[in-house]
Design a protein around this nucleic acid. Structure first.
Lengths: 340, 340
DNA sequence: TGCTATGATGTTAGCGCTAGCAATTGACGA
DNA sequence: TCGTCAATTGCTAGCGCTAACATCATAGCA
């Protein structure tokens, strides 16, 4: 068993026990060549015996790198961010990086800046920014990150910073076009908060797609991603006597709330109103009715952003670009042709 | 603007610009007394001008503390853990601690140990272990954590380690008793994986409560927390021609899947079968029908564990105990008296 | 035999920061 | 006048580790 000393075990302690210099121990720990098998074994024995664990702070200080990535994200109690964080962490671990978290509650540029700052002060080799808020200035982000490499996830399409995004324009067109193809002509929308890139892009694309089809967009209400807000948004639409046969909803949770409101109002889904969601959360297939939705590959988002970030860390000259992923329409029973 | 030097800005640089010693700058940065207002202002100006940010690694090395907590948790794509991680992070931030994450995929004791080890090697002042798996030996945990203070969340009730738990026994009794009070006599259960403390506790309490009422428990199927598994579990119960009027389900997502299976089988909820879930996820109130469920206060769990952990860090002699939280039954439309 | 190449180790000098003490100044009471 | 004290600042020595160089065998070759 490890000696339960009050002081932590250091390289020096191991060196003394193994009868070598601390430098040699360091070489063994870091898998350097030029250590004889015999010495290596003696050192490893000593390490095990003493329960030695390298001190990361000291190593960071000496090497100028920490093997830590920082993640700045809005509350991970949402499905999307939780997925991304999980995948970022997993991918990072596979590449030898740990992960430090800094979450933000209200998605204002100021709070985002504070969160980045909190991590920037710490030792991280790179930053993953899951900050889907509109109004975050490119210059601000660059200034805050300083010379720390970073990758943005879920920012606006076309941003001139290292980023990985899902084409929400495309996704929203998929959803709206699907409804148009079914024959719907009167559509309403419940969007996410429009200060989110994704929500805004989906909203705009909804209008554009209708426009291209020569249709007038019906009323639009803004929710906050929760089922509760979807419920209230739908009630609001119904209260203002909007007449529609199809509803595009900004995410699956809000769609759930909307469906409940519709049903309480005596409307059947999909016979009276077709509903499309976004994300394809694992529960969507078990909604009543199972939800047609636009699937986002959050896993790929997390993985690719880490890959890109690690490339940036290893080689500062990695070209800056934006990688774009495309969502996929999953058709289930919540959509059908309008019955009139 | 900050001088975009290749080297990072150090205390020394600030000291030079401000015309003081590096020690004085350190005092300003750390809010020590005995710095004149004039000097303080000059130093702060220099800090701003140079864009100085203290190097955490160096500070950790010098002070022997990192102001970092480690979180070991199973995949945060589940609702409960995501909630806990969020709240741990928030509370930690409020107390001046950052948070480092280490997630585990398969909840085996071996993987848990690996995750703890990964963090233990890093510099953290304390560990939050969200490791609800049965079979994790107390001795192993203590050995791995070494002299790093830790708090376990969601471990077994009665564990002799610092921990904060929700009394799942109590919660399960609430759910089952609610159904008994409504007049149900034939109950089935879909539980979570029984190698999870919570799932096991709920399962046992389900049996005990029925026992106390002189009733034989109906069939029980184990799911994996997902809606899909709930769906398949319910189909399995129906396939074996189990006759029941009420169903206790290990979490809300599985309840959603189960309800869908029941409906597909021509059974109405709650008229034919009452269903109770666990957790009270934000969507539960919008299920069809709105779900009766046992609410877990994950936020409190996260907060209290950090408070406890910080107390342990500040004072190693803080008494070891287990704090117990109690869940709450939320009655909605998915339960009603059996109609026969 | 000398002379280089190379493997295997030790020595030294920091990385950026802070604790602890020393030094300096001015104010105040004895 | 001197000693004492508090306020303010600087100096020095590490924290535990690694990069870079220095050292010293030993082997291989002319």
């Amino acid at each position: 068993m490890a000696e339960p000393d009050s002081r932590r075990v250091t390289l020096e302690d191991v060196a003394r026990v193994a009868g070598v210099s601390s430098q040699t121990v360091s070489r063994v720990v870091n898998d350097h060549p030029y250590v004889s098998d015999d010495t290596r074994r003696r050192v490893q024995d000593a390490i095990r015996k003493l329960g030695y664990r390298p001190n990361r702070a000291a190593r960071s200080l000496a090497t100028q790198r920490s093997c830590m990535l920082g993640i700045v994200t809005y509350g991970i109690d949402h499905y999307g961010p939780a997925q991304m964080v999980t995948n970022v962490e997993q991918t990072a671990k596979a590449r030898g990086y740990g992960v430090t978290l800094s979450t933000i509650q209200t998605l204002t540029p100021a709070e985002v800046c504070a969160a980045i700052d909190a991590l920037g002060g710490s030792v991280v080799d790179g930053l993953v920014l899951i900050t889907p808020v509109v109004g975050l200035r490119t210059a601000d982000v660059m200034a805050l990150c300083g010379d720390i490499p970073f990758v943005q996830i879920d920012t606006n399409l076309g941003a001139k910073l290292p980023s990985v995004v899902i084409d929400q324009h495309y996704g929203s067109r998929l959803a709206t076009q699907h409804l148009l193809d079914l024959g719907h002509r009167r559509l309403c929308e419940i969007s996410g908060p429009l200060y989110w890139h994704g929500a805004l892009a989906r909203h705009r694309s909804w209008i554009e797609t209708l426009d291209a089809a020569g249709l007038e967009p019906g009323p639009h209400v803004e929710g906050d991603w929760t089922a509760a807000s979807g419920y209230h948004a739908a009630r609001q639409l119904l209260a203002q006597r909007a007449s529609f046969t199809a509803l595009v909803v900004g995410n699956d949770q809000m769609a759930l709330g909307a469906i409940r409101a519709l049903r309480e109002h005596g409307l059947r889904v999909p016979q009276d109103v077709s509903v499309v969601g976004f994300d394809d959360i694992p529960e969507a297939a078990y909604f009543e009715p199972p939800l047609t939705t636009v699937r986002q590959n959050f896993a790929a988002l997390g993985e690719q952003s880490v890959e890109y970030l690690v490339a940036l860390i290893d080689n500062r000259n990695t070209p800056i670009h934006q990688r774009v992923l495309y969502p996929q329409l999953i058709v289930r029973q919540s959509t059908c042709p309008p019955c009139e």
